[in-house]
Simulated assay, not measured.
Amino acid sequence: MLKEKRKQRKIRQSLTWAGLPLVAVLGWLYPWLGFLLLGCMVGAVGVAIFRGRAWCDWMCPRGAFFDLFVRPLSQKKTIPAFFRSRAVRVFMLGLIFTMIGIQWYLAWGDGAAMGLALVRILTVTTVVGIILGLLIHPRIWCHICPMGTLSHWLSRGKEPLSIGKTCTVCRACARACPMQLKPYEYRLDGTMGDNDCIKCGTCVAACPRRALSFRSGHGEKEAGLVA
């Protein structure tokens, strides 16, 4: 089941990853492509309002690229708590939008130059993400990505992962999670309170006790079946 789920994710990600080099590489020749980045920004926030960070699973070209091409070469180390701190996230959010704002102010009225500013930001942050991904973990950038941060804040209560009483804390969910989250830690709460969940369903497929689901009330139903 886990193998099939990962296969499905790869198929979906294969449909979107090319959007990253399209903008980050060809954008230097055709600056107007940079405005596609705005579409991704709107998409990430829009989806977060209804489904949490689901955009980051496979709809985000950069996230898909990291999973498909960086993950096989990554050291896959534990992501330091530093990268998940509120202070770092707020700093990165402010830094990126300040840089975009300054460049747009200087280039205002010149569409190509404004598009190139977005290409420049995307290229630099992608290079940083690849380096961090290779040295630490492929999805480490997703924890400090400005749009990921906004999605994180908007995700509270949106399609939360249910953890049933059949959970035995085997930690199979944590080992499978591409974001290095730990659903089992929320067993007593019944739902996972970590808003960085990208709704990929990998943990659900990995659970040997069928204790996880994105369906409301699943945990209670499963507990009743076992009892």
Rank of each mutant, 00 (worst) to 15 (best):
L2Y: 12
S14C: 06
L20Y: 06
P21K: 11
G27K: 03
W28R: 05
P31L: 06
L38M: 14
G39M: 09
V42I: 14
G52E: 02
R53L: 08
W55G: 06
D57S: 15
C60L: 06
C60Q: 09
G63V: 09
F66M: 10
F66C: 00
Q75M: 02
T78F: 03
T78H: 08
I79Y: 03
A81P: 00
F82K: 07
R89M: 11
L95V: 12
I102K: 05
I102G: 05
G109E: 01
M114E: 08
M114R: 12
G115Y: 05
L116F: 13
A117F: 10
T125V: 14
G129W: 01
L134K: 11
H137R: 09
P138F: 09
P146L: 04
S151K: 09
H152E: 14
S155D: 04
R156D: 11
G157K: 03
E159Y: 05
T166L: 09
C167K: 11
R171E: 12
A174K: 08
R175L: 13
M179K: 11
Q180M: 10
G190A: 11
I198P: 04
C203N: 06
A211I: 06
L212K: 07
S213G: 09
S213W: 11
G219F: 03
E222L: 09
E222F: 03
G224Y: 13
V226Q: 15
